[in-house]
């Protein structure tokens, strides 16, 4: 299907001038997506499972020092470097701009993770373990991944699915703002906005036209669906 004919092209804008690095989105993501608990020792071994992380950068020296934050997650690239390297097509692209991961196909070569320039893919080196009764919290809409499987941010595909079903049953298109991934829904300063880039009037499309816009590693030609707005500046986006 050509780009123009699509109803939905999911995308996200993250305004770094609003993001305070508070971490609410990170916990929201874990709660929504059944992301495994990771002990201290596992972190030391590099086995972090976060789908969304807050990068922190120091800038300058005391007293002219600043810290900047950047929420990092799967960029849902239009030309995703993780997709062509998967020998079993577990990493694939759908026609709404999402980079999907078929867990049951994944054989754990981890090529996709190696090839992702954003380092947002995490691998289940172990089976996830939640002591009782923590498993009762698990979201029934989301698969629990087992050992040997690669996983990453899905833009909360279960919520997109639900939103589209609701819209379909009411014979309409999804309304702007109706679907929100867990991170965007909780973010106190409203730094994360999700929506349909195919609709030029959607909130996300309007923000995406900001003069403050940039994308990560634009020069690699990955065509990310996540658009960042520069922080700390004085210009303003409408």
């Amino acid at each position: 299907m050509s780009r123009q004919a699509r109803f939905y092209q999911w995308g996200m804008v993250i305004d770094l001038d609003r993001c305070t690095g508070c971490g609410a989105c990170v916990v929201a993501c874990q709660a929504e997506n059944n992301v495994a608990l990771v002990e201290k020792q596992r972190f030391a071994e590099g086995r972090d499972m976060h789908w969304l992380r807050i990068e922190r950068y120091w800038e300058g020296e005391f007293p002219h020092v600043r810290a900047r934050f950047l929420p990092m997650l799967c960029q849902h690239c239009g030309d995703a470097p993780c997709e062509p390297v998967c020998p079993v097509y577990a990493s694939y692209h759908n026609d709404e701009g999402l980079n999907g991961q078929v867990y049951n196909r994944c054989v754990g070569t981890r090529y996709c993770g190696n090839n992702c320039p954003y380092a947002v893919r995490v691998f289940n080196f172990l089976n996830p373990d939640w002591p009782q009764p923590l498993p009762d919290q698990l979201n029934p809409d989301v698969t629990v991944r087992s050992r040997g499987v690669m996983e990453k941010c899905t833009f909360c595909i279960q919520r997109i699915r639900r939103g589209k079903e609701t819209a379909k049953s009411e014979k309409r298109l999804v309304r702007d703002g109706e679907i929100q991934p867990a991170c965007a829904q909780t973010c106190p300063p409203g730094a994360i906005v999700f929506g349909n880039l195919a609709d030029p009037d959607s909130h996300v499309s309007r923000l995406a036209r900001s003069p403050r816009r940039f994308r990560l590693f634009e020069d690699l030609g990955t065509d990310p669906s996540v658009i960042y707005l520069k922080g700390g500046g004085h210009e303003h986006a409408g």
Binding site: E96, L98, G100, Y103, N104, P140, Q158, I160
Partner: peptide, 19 residues
């Protein structure tokens, strides 16, 4: 069982049936 959800055998966006 909620503890051991069977992973979907299909692409997530086609297979999820929201409860």
């Amino acid at each position: 069982s909620n503890e051991k959800l069977i992973p979907f055998l299909v692409a997530p966006e086609d297979g999820t049936v929201p409860g």
